[in-house]
Every structure is written in structure tokens, then in C-alpha cells.
Design a protein around this nucleic acid. Structure first.
Lengths: 195, 195
DNA sequence: CGAAAATTTGACATGACTCAACTGGAGTGG
DNA sequence: CCACTCCAGTTGAGTCATGTCAAATTTTCG
């Protein structure tokens, strides 16, 4: 039963659950293993689950009209993964979520989340707080994309997510940064020359 | 007392407040009038209030190291305005919020919001839901900035926020779109030639 | 009306993209 | 253990989207 521990610990860092609430919550969670390459969600499907990664790594991306892939985010241990837009409206997703490594996650359906919130009202607070944080991070990213050069964005990414950078092929990082893989390669060679 | 009506109506579209709760809530709200040009928040100050615009218009922007202004968002009637990052952490703000017109808003402090949430728990739900929506909108914007040309972003903006476009000088719209005022001007003249 | 602010226009510069060729592992199988 | 392929990464030439700067024009508003 303690496969849900990582999420419960994570929640307890923000609100405090009683023993009983932990039980109640656990009964509404599911655990899932996915292999590298498998999809947690496909563009066009309704996103029925929110996922919390406990091991491995996913990429969230979408394919535009020209067939170009754009990475929206990566999720590693202790991060959430889903298409929030699709999840809250229960309309077809804009995004795909695919595993970059063998991945284990805890997930729950929209209906189960509603039930959680009814039974354990303090989870309203928990979800509000984590979404506030996600929103702030998202705003920050907009601002950065607007005011920083590709090179500076890359340097910042490297500083903020050193763990992610090491696990992920460069062409995906380029995509996340909003540049081409060729251009990222050129940025890197400039950086080497400089010092 | 009914200066708080717009916000209460807005809340009631998402959760249902009793007469008594409306009273309670009202006692924790404040009303404020600002003149065109006045600041609701300045970069570096702690954002002590969340604001809900009932009349007028604000811009949220920041000034980067080169002294360049970047518009993060506009807020008109029935929209929120604040620096969420600063508000939730109570650390110095990255953003300024300034009125583009004479503006009336309802606002409340961080402490008052905490009190509201204690006294009227269903507001946890309310805030969670509106922040979810804001987060989704923010994600969408990231995606658009990554995959669309400046021209398409402008056309989309014009379609989505026709009301805002008419009220706001073009150089601010350019800034919001992440381009220079000169380039937006060129986009517009191309659009005219095209049809 | 006149001054200041906003917008437009043009010449030129540059950051980032495209495409195509090349390099260099990491399997895989004979 | 070699040959082959496949995939990620690099490099270079040419191009395009957007930026910079400066001047001209239009609009706004006291």
C-alpha cells in the first residue's frame, strides 16, 4: 500500500492529513507503471487523469499544424503531469504526455478528485496552493521567453534544472526552449569557445 | 455597500454564497479608485493585495535590466490583477501594475484572504477553480508564443480581446505580444495591403 | 494652435531557422 | 570483431523574421 507514500508526503508538506484521511485518500488513488515511449495521454483524447511522477520522466508536448513537435514541459520525480486544460474541462487534449524513461506514477481521475475534495476538504487548499505555484512558474516562463535571448534561456535552464538536462536528449531541450536543435548546438559551441 | 456586487456575482457563478456569507465576505473587502497613471503595485514592493477590476483597465509589466518594459497582461472589468508570485510568497514583486484608465477595483489583503478562507471554506474551491483557469490560459500563451508567428499572434489577440485592443495604445499591445512597436506597425500595414 | 505622444516608414543589422552534409557513438547481427 | 544502420549531435551556407535606429507623419490633448 505504500506506493502512495511519495504523494502523501508531498501533500503533508502543505497541509496535514490525519491517519484516517491518508487511508481515505489512498483508496481513491491508483498506481501505474509505464515503459519508455508509452503515452500517458494523447492529443485529442480527454485527459481523464492527473498524474504525479514518483520515478522516471515524461515530456508534455504538442504537434502543430505543420507537424512540428513542441515540448511544453518535462516532469520528473515529485512533479505533476497532465493536460490541465483538458482535465478541468473534460474536453479533448491539446497535448501528449509520453514517457522518456520507464516511469512510475500515482494518478487519479477527475471524478475521484471530486470525491477526495468532498471527503477531505483541506485538499481544496492543497490543490489551490500547488496550482498557484504552477501558475507563477508559468508566468515566469512567459516573461523569460519574452525578454531573454535563446542563449540566456539555455543557461538559466541548465542552472535551474541540472538534473533534467542530464537525462534528456538535447533536441528535446531545444524544443522546450523554443529553438531548433541546430541552433542549440551552435549556442553550446559558442559557450565552449568563450571560456 | 453594493460596490462589492460585481465580485460577489462573479463568485456566485462558480460557488454559491449564502446571504450571510456575502455579508461576511464584504466585511473583508475594500474598494478603491485609482486615476489613470497611478500604480496599484510597484516592482520591488511586496504585493499586499489581490485586485478585482470593476471598471477601467490596468497593465501588468516589468522593466528588465536594459530598462526595457514588457507587458505581461492587461486586466479589464471582471479580471484579476496582482503579482501572484509576490502575493503568495510575500516577497518583493517582479511586476508593476499601473492604471491605463481611471480604474475602480475591489481588493483584499493576503491576511484578509486567509480569514475569508477560514470563515467561508467554499472559497477555497472558488480560488482553486479560477487559478486553474488562469494557469491553463498561461500555458496556452506559452504554446502560442512558441509556435506562432508575430502576425498570427496579433490576429489571434485581436480576435480574442477585441475590447482590449480598442482601448489600448498599440505600442503596449506590441509589448504584450513580445514584439517591437515598429514591427507591429509593419504587420498592420501588410494586413491592409493583403485584402 | 502647439507640444508631446503615438504611429509609420525606410535602411540596415542580427538572431534564429532551414536544409543538407557530415561526424560520431550505440546497438545489432552476421 | 567488423560492417551496417540508426539516431543524436555538429557544422556551414543561405534565408527569413524580427530588431534597431533615425526620421517623418499623424493623432491626441492641454
Amino acid at each position: 500500500m505504500d506506493k502512495f507514500r511519495p504523494l502523501i508526503d508531498y501533500i503533508n508538506r502543505i497541509v496535514t492529513l490525519t491517519e484516517e484521511e491518508e487511508q481515505q485518500l489512498s483508496s481513491l488513488l491508483s498506481y501505474r507503471k509505464l515503459l519508455k515511449g508509452q503515452y500517458f495521454l494523447q492529443q485529442g483524447d480527454v485527459c481523464k487523469f492527473s498524474g504525479f511522477v514518483i520515478k522516471g520522466c515524461t515530456k508534455t508536448f504538442y504537434v502543430d499544424d505543420e507537424g512540428q513537435e513542441h515540448v511544453v514541459m518535462f516532469s520528473i520525480e515529485d512533479w505533476w503531469t497532465s493536460d490541465m486544460g483538458s482535465y478541468i474541462t473534460q474536453k479533448p487534449a491539446d497535448f501528449n504526455v509520453q514517457c522518456l524513461e520507464n516511469t512510475e506514477l500515482i494518478h487519479f481521475s477527475y471524478e475521484n478528485q471530486e470525491q477526495m475534495l468532498r471527503e477531505i476538504p483541506k485538499l481544496e487548499r492543497f490543490f489551490r496552493i500547488i496550482i498557484e505555484r504552477a501558475f507563477v512558474a508559468s508566468q515566469k516562463r512567459i516573461v523569460r521567453n519574452m525578454s531573454m535571448s535563446a542563449k540566456d534561456r539555455y543557461l538559466l535552464f541548465r542552472k535551474e534544472y541540472p538534473k533534467i538536462e542530464q537525462r534528456i536528449p538535447q533536441y528535446l531541450i531545444a524544443s522546450y526552449l523554443g529553438i531548433t536543435k541546430e541552433f542549440l548546438s551552435k549556442i553550446k559551441s559558442h559557450l565552449i569557445l568563450e571560456q
